[in-house]
Design a protein around this nucleic acid. Sequence first.
DNA 1: TTGGGTTACCACGACC
DNA 2: GGTCGTGGTAACCCAA
Lengths: 90, 90, 90, 90
Amino acid sequence: MADESAAQASSNDVGGIAADQLRSFIERIERLEEEKANIASDIKDVYAEAKSSGFDTKIMRQIIRIRKMEPHERAEQEELLDLYLSAVGY
Amino acid sequence: MADESAAQASSNDVGGIAADQLRSFIERIERLEEEKANIASDIKDVYAEAKSSGFDTKIMRQIIRIRKMEPHERAEQEELLDLYLSAVGY
Amino acid sequence: MADESAAQASSNDVGGIAADQLRSFIERIERLEEEKANIASDIKDVYAEAKSSGFDTKIMRQIIRIRKMEPHERAEQEELLDLYLSAVGY
Amino acid sequence: MADESAAQASSNDVGGIAADQLRSFIERIERLEEEKANIASDIKDVYAEAKSSGFDTKIMRQIIRIRKMEPHERAEQEELLDLYLSAVGY
DNA sequence: TTGGGTTACCACGACC
DNA sequence: GGTCGTGGTAACCCAA
């Protein structure tokens, strides 16, 4: 797959793979996942705050879920129409 | 449903609940979730880039999973797996 | 978790687990998965047949998908109503 | 677009497409998918039963995955994993 | 024939 | 321990 005989000044080949490059990818991902986890934690905090203000977080979650899917549903309606038209050859 | 008593400039009470406050919580969460989704998308991109550099993303995911685990956790899993494997004749 | 000191006439204990029982579970599952795979294959065949009769399988898949989710959507509408009522304290 | 030539008692032509035939295909598929879902549900039940007998279902799934793989396949994965791990410094 | 994109399924982990 | 949402995996389709 890779050019096995190339000089590896900086790429630090291990068993035929570019170890440095792999490590770099892995670290980038791990870093992004950390950020993601932080945001998830922030979200949790907001729910906690809302809860301590007397709101029902379960209902809040439902609202958010449904708000998220409403655009999809509208799209689906149009899709549905197109769909049956196509099925029938138009 | 009806205006229970008086106009409330800023707290906008509806059904006994501070609707404005609720809306604010919801919007904060939705915003955070959007950020989270963006990061998830970035992660996907990195995997795609790694893949097009010739790396096996499935293995990469394993690596990341392993690095995230406590060493003893990992050892326990292995042990249990071996046990079950031998129980099943491997 | 399990009664470690019990007599194991038939259960063939291996490293503290009931090997026979485990094997039995595994085999039941494998068998069911085989059946499932067969049905998946049948489905594939029907699509192939439909395709060779001139139908667009992509559209067929869409139709099936949407038929499957229509009941959900109706349920969602009711849920939505309840939801906003709850959010507002009713 | 219109009825191209003659009335078709049984084939019920719509838009140039044999609607009856399409419906039949769809229904066959939906039926098969229902069967498939039932089997999936059975599988779930077996896992639940195994769990309540004290087995670790996650490990069971691993076992089943391993048994499904060709030996050399499994070996390759392990090898690649080790390679990546060492590249990353483990 | 194969690789990449897409989709649906399923498992896993988080949260309650 | 149960539920819910998210992510990973595997199937399937098309294009090259």
